[in-house]
């Protein structure tokens, strides 16, 4: 863990002991698996979130390293979306700390998160179907000419370049998003994130409702992102999808960390068993503490 020196040392045991201990039975599992590479990019410590009386996140820890692909799994209601909404600034945590590139940060709005380089791609909600590819990619950040008009030429050129960098070749930047396949739409949304120099891209269920061929495209996009040094958090119900691209898999259950394990140290059957039961039982991945 040489690379993570910038992050203030957090004695996690102490943090847990000073607060309430809602996740006590999973505490052992909540410890992180060894980083698969490089520096810590995002570190979320002891995150709590209440919605009225519902305690949706009960002291979750979550770490992403530079250029790492992390699969975030768990059953419905496990707290996956709440956690990433905290990371992308949509929700603010009621308790806990967030560190980005070693500095503690406050994420009060999606704008704050984006300014740091955290981009979130929500399934289906990310794009405007009746606008062109180029106008979608530059939505809200349109380049302008000296006269204050949209610089369509720059937009077209850079859109096509961003898409090409993902291995996605579309005929024209003028094509409407509604004319694209589900996989291509994900590609456009991801291209938008990397064009604006995201360091961390969060994909919320990117393969849901996609055909087998489209899923393969999306997984390729994820590999392209990693090749460019961009970290990816990949939220999914489908372990098979995430297993082929993730370096590490984090499983949440009932708002707590359940498993944090390197992909190569476990297998789909073991993890799906754990997710289905919602507790570790005897099936603790044996190598998770490898450091």
């Amino acid at each position: 863990m040489e690379g993570s020196a910038q992050v203030p040392a957090n004695d996690e045991e102490e943090l847990f002991d000073t607060g309430s201990l809602p996740c006590v039975s999973e505490r052992a599992a909540a410890e992180e698996a060894a980083p698969t590479n490089g520096q810590v990019l995002l570190k979320m410590v002891n995150i709590h979130k209440w919605f009225g009386r519902v305690h949706a996140l009960r002291g979750v820890n979550f770490t992403v390293h530079r250029g790492e692909v992390v699969g975030l799994c768990g059953d419905n209601g496990a707290g996956k979306s709440t956690l990433i909404k905290v990371a992308s600034g949509y929700h603010t945590a009621d308790e806990g700390q967030i560190f980005f590139e070693g500095r503690e940060v406050k994420l009060r709005s999606p704008k704050d998160a984006r300014a740091l380089g955290i981009e979130t791609v929500y399934q289906e909600q990310a794009l405007c179907p009746h606008l062109s590819i180029a106008r979608n990619i530059f939505m809200g950040r349109e380049p302008t000419t000296l006269l204050g008009l949209i610089d369509q030429r720059t937009m077209n050129k850079e859109s096509m370049e961003a898409l090409a960098s993902m291995g996605l070749r579309l005929r024209s930047p003028h094509a409407l998003v509604s004319a694209l396949s589900g996989g291509q739409r994900q590609g456009v949304a991801i291209a938008r994130a990397i064009h604006f120099k995201a360091k961390l891209v969060i994909l919320d269920e990117p393969t849901i409702a996609l055909s087998v061929k489209e899923v393969r495209e999306v997984l390729d996009f994820v590999r392209h992102l990693r090749d460019q040094g961009v970290a990816v958090v990949f939220i999914t119900h489908t372990l098979h999808h995430v297993f082929s691209v993730a370096d590490r898999i984090v499983v949440l259950a009932h708002g707590c960390n359940l498993v944090d394990v390197r992909t190569k140290d476990t297998d789909v059957d073991e993890l799906s068993d754990i997710i289905a039961r919602g507790t570790l039982g005897d099936a603790v991945p044996t190598t998770q503490h490898a450091r």
Partner: peptide, 12 residues
């Protein structure tokens, strides 16, 4: 256009 087409995406 973005607001009318998909306000959620526009806000995002």
């Amino acid at each position: 256009y973005a607001t009318g087409d998909n306000a959620q995406a526009a806000r995002a």
